[in-house]
Design a protein around this nucleic acid. Structure first.
Lengths: 148, 148
DNA sequence: GAAGATTGAGGCTTCAATCTTC
DNA sequence: GAAGATTGAAGCCTCAATCTTC
């Protein structure tokens, strides 16, 4: 594949992928759970990383701190997490998942696993490893391109 | 790679890709143009397909008809397109890019091409074809999974 | 009644300005 | 002043209800 044409091919393929995945709907997870995409991502991060600050979470999710402020505010109201001020530096608010939050996180995680299992099943078996590796390569490339 | 683990790997890789690409910001194109993502996509579709109806456009973009109604309304105000009622069936409103709309479409298209050219450059040369093919496979799989 | 299109209400994200704590 | 966090205003998308045309 010639270089210029390759860029166009990649462009179309990625566009299809984005549309197919319904990524323009931030109010719903691709797995059709009753949770916003950001909430699902936040639950995932907080379930695996103890006591993140809101800025930490914003960096990981690539969201603005104002968005995260409202996001965790909603999650606190739902009883999914607690925000306790860091005693050593009261500017920070440390985020911890509650027991209820962990339960929700596991439930959503299971639905997500099932969804991706089905997605993987829809790919011919002999191409699965190549697809996974390719997405990984692409993600790395896009990160370098964005951060540059 | 075992089957269950593969799903998790794919999940993480795709998540990284989405975040890296900034797809949670519908108000800005990944190419940092001063256009909403949907507007850019709409311009692309209307530039290559003559006289689509609003429902046609909604189907192609996977947006709701209400969203498209407001979207093309904005574009009409900007003078990028015209909406003329279909004389044979006045329920339809046919969409046509204006000369100004075509110009904008070309400009944005050029920026997008450059962006994807850089993205492709950030991928090792011997992996480019495999990556493109993989994204294509993935897009097809996700479409089947969604439509099912 | 069916199908295309529009309008009102609400959720998610951003930007800019502001508050708090160091 | 610097950095973390919050609030107000505006844009994009969806859902539900409504209007128009067949």
């Amino acid at each position: 594949v010639p270089h210029e044409q390759g860029a166009a091919e990649l462009q179309h393929a990625l566009l299809d992928l984005v549309r197919g995945f319904g990524l323009h709907r931030p109010d719903r997870t691709p797995c059709d759970q009753l949770v916003a995409i950001s909430e699902a991502h936040a639950l995932m991060e907080l379930d695996t990383h103890e006591a993140l600050t809101q800025s930490d979470l914003a960096r990981r999710l690539r969201l603005r701190k104002s968005t995260v402020s409202r996001l965790v505010g909603q999650m606190e109201i739902k009883g999914w997490l607690e925000r306790e001020p860091d005693e050593r530096d009261r500017r920070f608010r440390l985020l911890r998942l509650s027991a209820a939050g962990e339960t929700v996180s596991r439930t959503i995680g299971a639905a997500r696993d099932a969804k991706f299992q089905r997605l993987l099943d829809a790919i011919p078996e002999d191409q699965r490893d190549a697809v996974i590796e390719s997405v990984r390569v692409l993600a790395r490339a896009s990160r370098e391109e964005v951060d540059a």
